[in-house]
Simulated scan of single mutants.
Amino acid sequence: MIEVVAEKRVGEARVRVRYAETDQMGVVYHSNYLIWFEVGRVELIRSMGLDYKRMEAEEGCGIAVVEVHVRYRAPARYDDELMVETRLMAARGAVIKFRYKVLRIADGALLCEGETVHVVVGKNMKKMCLPPKYAERFAAYLASHASHE
Rank of each mutant, 00 (worst) to 15 (best):
K97Q: 12
V102T: 14
R92K: 15
E113Y: 01
V120L: 10
K101D: 14
A94P: 15
P131E: 12
K127F: 06
L103I: 03
P131R: 10
I96Q: 03
I105R: 14
A91P: 01
R87F: 01
A106I: 01
L111G: 01
C112V: 13
I96N: 00
R92Y: 03
Y100R: 10
E115L: 08
D107Q: 08
V95C: 07
N124V: 00
Y134L: 09
Y134C: 05
G108T: 09
V121D: 01
V120A: 14
T116G: 06
T86R: 02
A139K: 07
A106M: 09
L88Q: 00
C129W: 04
L88Y: 00
A135Q: 13
M128C: 14
V121S: 05
A94D: 11
I96F: 02
P132F: 00
Y134S: 02
R99H: 13
F98A: 02
A106F: 05
R104H: 10
K126Q: 15
A109K: 15
F138N: 08
I96T: 11
V121Q: 11
H118Y: 07
A94F: 11
G114T: 03
D107R: 10
T116E: 10
K133H: 13
L88W: 03
F138S: 07
G93W: 08
R92I: 10
K127M: 13
R137P: 00
E113I: 12
C112K: 02
